[in-house]
Amino acid sequence: MSESPASSAASQPLDTHSPPAPSTRAKEPASLTGLEKARAALLGAGLTFPQIPETLAVALKEKERWVFSTRDVKMSPYDIDNHVKESYDPPSPYVVLAHAGYGFNSYVITYYLVFGPLRLFLHLGFGGAYMNEKEDVIKIRECFSLADQIFEAAKTSGKLFPDEYLTVVCSDFYANYWGLSLPERSRLSNESQESPEEFLAKILKWLKNPKPRRPRCTPVRKQVVVR
């Protein structure tokens, strides 16, 4: 994956005076949970709310304006590169939902989910000065629906071998790619220039394909890579 041009800006505070985040920031009772605030923000912007595992949902907190996470936010949600690289050595399960970006047009809705056999990173354009909000709403709603189905299929389809996990990286600004990984051995491949919806639908189709995978074992530093 190419280095993000935003990597130098990722550590800077988000520019709240640039094109506005989705206009949903109504006064909220202090008693609302982070999950309720996140849901209200997304639904208020016309989006759907993605499926979040219960153990993570109860830990979701509003870290700053339009940034919801189950852990401390040490890097900008826009910085997808470093989030993906971190997942090569899988961190504790977490979820990040945010509207983040910089400049006039580099704004995205991010949904990062690291849980069980899935490392899912959605980085979908939304809120920039030159973006089509109606089209982006349709796209994000469809991508969230596909992400929900991928999450369920990754757990139940039987396509993944023990200790293997599926990494899916889907971005409007950078290449889409996915791959299967084993501990200490990353095998990301299958780069694609398809639309986010087409890309996610292809992965879901692979997961739901009843044809079993035949293991091909290759010793790699005392590891066994199953293709």
Score class of each variant (00 low, 15 high):
S7E: 05
I52T: 04
N190M: 12
N132V: 03
A153W: 04
K208M: 06
S171M: 03
P53Y: 11
L188C: 09
F144H: 11
R25Y: 11
P93E: 13
R221C: 10
D72M: 09
A154Q: 04
F126T: 01
V84G: 04
R25S: 13
R25T: 08
I138E: 12
V84K: 02
A38Q: 00
R39W: 04
V108F: 12
Q223Y: 11
L43A: 00
W66A: 05
E135G: 14
S7T: 10
M75I: 14
Y177F: 15
D136A: 15
F144L: 11
P196V: 09
K27W: 14
R214S: 09
D79R: 01
V114L: 07
Y107H: 13
L35C: 01
A21H: 06
A26Y: 13
A26P: 00
F161S: 10
W66L: 02
M1W: 10
K37Q: 15
E197T: 15
P183F: 02
F161Y: 14
G127A: 06
R187I: 13
G128L: 07
S69W: 02
D15A: 10
K139N: 10
R187Q: 11
P212Y: 01
P93Q: 13
K27E: 13
F151H: 08
K61I: 00
H17W: 15
R216N: 09
P215I: 06
A26H: 14
A45G: 09
H123F: 07
P162I: 10
W178V: 04
V225C: 12
L160A: 10
L47M: 10
A129V: 11
W178I: 04
P19N: 10
K63M: 09
N105Y: 08
G128D: 01
I109Y: 13
Q193R: 13
P5T: 11
K222N: 15
L60T: 05
Y107W: 15
N190C: 08
A147W: 04
F121V: 04
G101R: 09
S106Y: 15
E64V: 11
I138Q: 12
E142Y: 03
V224H: 05
H17R: 14
L56K: 06
F115Y: 15
V108Y: 07
I203K: 03
E54K: 13
K155E: 13
I203V: 11
G127N: 05
W206L: 10
F151E: 01
C143W: 01
L122S: 01
V84S: 03
I203C: 06
F144N: 08
L188D: 07
P196D: 04
Y102S: 08
S8H: 10
Y165S: 06
K63H: 09
M75F: 00
E152Q: 07
R119M: 02
K85P: 01
L204F: 01
R141G: 07
I150H: 00
S69I: 08
K205S: 06
P162C: 09
R141N: 13
P90F: 10
R25D: 15
H83R: 06
P215M: 04
F104P: 00
